[in-house]
Simulated assay, not measured.
Amino acid sequence: MKFLHNISRIEAFSDGVFAFAATLMVVNFDMGGEMSFSKANLTGFLAFFVSFFVLVALWWVHYNFFRRTDYMDNKIITLNSILLFVTLYYVFPLKSLVQSWMGEGVKTPGDLASLFVMYGIGFMLIFLCFALMYYRATTKSKKPKEKYILHFYFRHFLIFVVVGLLSIVLASAEIGIRFGMPGFVYALLGPFCALHSYFYYKNQEHQL
């Protein structure tokens, strides 16, 4: 007998993993035993601040997926599990990257390049999982409006994957590494996503 998947259990487990990732950030937030505004403490707080709100943003993207569809199967569960695993990994290169802004933890351009590569891999895998989850839900949706919205977000998150891959390529080749070029590449997400949204909805208007 085939049982229906319990989405609430999957969401609860996912929320637990996100909470655990936040806990890891708190545990690794070291004030060095001094309640003062030294550079080390300020760097640690900034890394914690940015990492926490990036994690909240990822949770929000994850939350919205389950608001847009109620379809669930083993493939989406697998992709969701990979997503959660990568999210736990992603916390550490993100924190180290923020600390590098303050001149800590990075001694050579090669170190910074490696950090950008690790960050890019995490970023790319997270949004690849989101894209594939949306694609799977798109292929199974029976409602035209829902199918249209899911397909839009499938393509939307593929843009994130491409930008992350571009950053990895630049970092691996150490192109513009001294100026943080692999990091500035992520600014392309704004115009790319805006263009995608404009042309996608414009195409939909022509079909109506």
Score class of each variant (00 low, 15 high):
147 K>F: 06
74 N>P: 00
179 F>M: 09
192 F>T: 07
202 K>A: 08
5 H>T: 00
30 D>P: 04
208 L>V: 11
138 T>N: 05
26 V>I: 15
109 P>A: 08
100 S>Q: 03
34 E>V: 13
15 D>G: 10
56 V>A: 13
156 H>D: 13
166 L>M: 15
117 V>L: 06
204 Q>T: 09
165 L>S: 10
9 R>G: 10
148 Y>I: 08
63 Y>C: 03
179 F>H: 07
125 L>H: 01
156 H>W: 14
112 L>M: 09
50 V>W: 04
70 D>F: 12
52 F>E: 04
139 T>A: 11
116 F>T: 00
66 F>K: 02
130 F>V: 09
100 S>D: 05
90 Y>R: 01
5 H>R: 06
177 I>E: 02
188 L>M: 13
102 M>F: 13
141 S>R: 07
68 R>K: 14
191 P>S: 07
44 G>I: 04
202 K>G: 15
28 N>Y: 15
4 L>M: 12
33 G>P: 09
115 L>A: 02
34 E>M: 09
56 V>M: 12
17 V>S: 07
121 I>V: 15
24 L>H: 03
49 F>Q: 07
7 I>D: 06
183 G>C: 12
43 T>R: 01
50 V>N: 01
141 S>N: 10
123 F>N: 07
204 Q>C: 04
70 D>H: 14
176 G>I: 03
125 L>P: 00
89 Y>V: 09
81 S>N: 07
81 S>H: 00
189 L>M: 14
187 A>V: 10
32 G>M: 12
198 Y>C: 02
191 P>W: 10
117 V>G: 02
76 I>A: 01
76 I>H: 02
29 F>I: 07
6 N>P: 01
162 V>W: 12
80 N>V: 06
